[in-house]
Nucleic acid binder design. Structure first.
Lengths: 340, 340
DNA sequence: ATGAAAGCGCTAACAG
DNA sequence: CTGTTAGCGCTTTCAT
């Protein structure tokens, strides 16, 4: 006899078993369990009773193969430890909860080749849709995405060339806008603190836009400081100390993310620096957990939840679209910049 | 003709298509693509070329049905926005990355009934194993878990009655140990600040153990403060203000999590309270992101990564075990308690 | 080293 | 309202 489960334990229960106990055909059991087609109340009851009694759990693999329908939506993000991604997932979940669709999460670890494998694995389960963070993928990944024949949405970024649909913000525009807000408030000796990883495409685009914005205003970017590793209070603190040691006369620090900005804020407050007069600060993302710092950090809402929701809606609509939905990031003044 | 995908677009590509292009049997293609059995180098090359040329992606649904093997491991956690769970997932991923197994994440939203549905959904895909956070589940969920016939591991908690295997810490012991550390350092007017949710079983168990530990030392718990909603700096700040308004002479505050403790710490520092002399603080979890606060919060490492790794190892071993692995939480003194 | 036949558990389609 | 038949795309088994 063939092995039925990894341990060759009891063979798995089938519709047939339920059908026998209930005294009906497999087809009738199938109809009852899926609430499809008309079944008399009496038979329905008997079937339910039999299924419950046996502890029957349907085999979705067989069902999916027969019906060619899989109620899964693949979601590929770089990581779960950076809070931005769970926020997007939250938005996706909000929408999919109203449908029979279920998200299945995969992580790329910021590695395009690994991402390609994850996408391949997901597609091999024939999901009903795929949502992938970012616009930068390997050629092979793009080819798979283009040919999958399912709704395909790239999220969080619209600066680039989507394979099909995209939902996100323009990070270049976000950087440019932030430059404008800072210059308008009279800051002129401006430093940028961010990730050295070229794999962090969105942060790189913000920096690019930020530089453009400053250039347009005729203000140079006075200094930069980069870190390898992960963002956090410690990282923000260390970078802040470093950049001010190098260039003590900076009057503004623009961080790639609120987490680092928070570390910088705490450091500067300890040093007795007057914020926002002596030095102004801004971050990115508008992390809610940080409400409760001594000062609210000036930041820009990256619309993560909205993006997740809209992407899920596109997938749930179940149409092959190449629509590009662009959200506008929202500047939050907070307490760490001079009043505008 | 039957619909082949949700849009009745191009029919899905099959092994047969690759076989035709390569001029061999389906069986040979299958063997090449799975690297199973002996195939001549020449045919292998031709098959690979054909598969690449066609952009063939195997159908895991059909493969799983035929082979009765599914390389997925279900992981059910309450939420992704609380950082403790991504940490466990990280540990799981570390181990599964060395195997053909892939984690599939589901969230219960702290709702046992929802959790039951998620477990049911997962089991219906016939995964190779299941990892579920916590020991508290509905009767139906426990029954499903007991009968699934696959490696089953409950994680993060060992205070209770596991369905099968369990990997975690004793939160009661953690609470008791913390009580000991606090009393030993001379604090006597102690307050607890935590979640009002009875669904947060692990925090409740820590509180229970904390009370026991204090009682054993003959010290009463002087006051408590509970919040609904999510933890964060704002929540910690508000609770701290509230409990000290009620009971101003407290000399120690024990928080359910570091996130809240951090909010409390910042609030007290602003008020000019002398820490750890006038008031001591402790949290739980040892969140790394918080390194970089003005003071390191006394805390207890909940061994999240170790737990994830060990749980994944049990699943990867592919044996039906009911082993209970108990990790010891580790007290971290930090800067917010008097030196021991 | 390769192929042919059978069937995994379920559902679509049709028959009654 | 219920049952029968065929077959989803792949892998197992057995044959050559």
């Amino acid at each position: 006899m063939r092995g039925r489960n990894p341990f060759d334990g009891k063979p798995q229960m089938t519709l047939r078993d339920v059908a026998e106990v209930a005294g009906v055909s497999e087809m009738t059991v199938s109809r009852v369990l899926r609430q499809r087609g008309d079944v008399s109340a009496k038979t329905r009851e008997r079937v339910f009773a039999a299924a419950r009694q046996l502890g029957y759990v349907p085999n979705k693999i067989a069902g999916a193969l027969a019906s060619n329908r899989v109620n899964l939506v693949g979601v590929v993000i770089p990581s779960l430890s950076n809070m931005v991604f769970p926020d997007v997932l939250g938005g996706i979940g909000d929408i999919l909860d109203e449908t029979p669709l279920q998200p299945v999460i995969g992580t790329s670890k910021y590695d395009p080749v690994h991402e390609e494998h994850v996408i391949y694995e997901m597609l091999s389960w024939r999901p009903s849709g795929l949502i992938v963070a970012g616009l930068e993928h390997t050629e092979a990944a793009r080819a798979m995405m283009a040919n999958a024949g399912i709704p395909m949405v790239e999220v969080m970024d619209v600066d680039g060339d989507p394979v099909a649909a995209a939902v996100g913000i323009s990070h270049e525009a976000a950087g440019r806008q932030m430059a404008g807000e800072i210059v308008r408030r009279g800051y002129r000796r401006i430093g940028y603190l961010g990730s050295s990883s070229i794999a962090d495409h969105r942060a790189q685009k913000r920096l690019k836009g930020f530089r453009q914005g400053l250039a347009e205003a005729g203000v140079p970017l006075s200094d930069e400081c980069f870190y390898a590793g992960s963002s956090g209070f410690g990282t923000g603190r260390a970078m802040t100390q470093e950049i001010l040691a190098k260039t003590p006369d900076l009057d503004f620090l623009y961080y790639n993310t609120d987490m680092n900005a928070a570390g910088g804020l705490l450091y500067l407050l300890e040093k007795g620096v007057s914020i926002p007069d002596q030095i102004g600060l801004a971050g990115f993302n508008c992390f809610e957990v940080l409400n409760g710092l001594p000062l609210r950090i000036a930041s820009m809402d990256s619309r993560r939840k909205d993006i997740g929701r809209r992407a899920a809606e596109l997938v749930a609509a179940n149409e092959l679209t190449d629509e590009v939905v662009r959200f506008d990031p929202v500047f939050l003044e907070g307490d760490t910049v001079r009043r505008g």
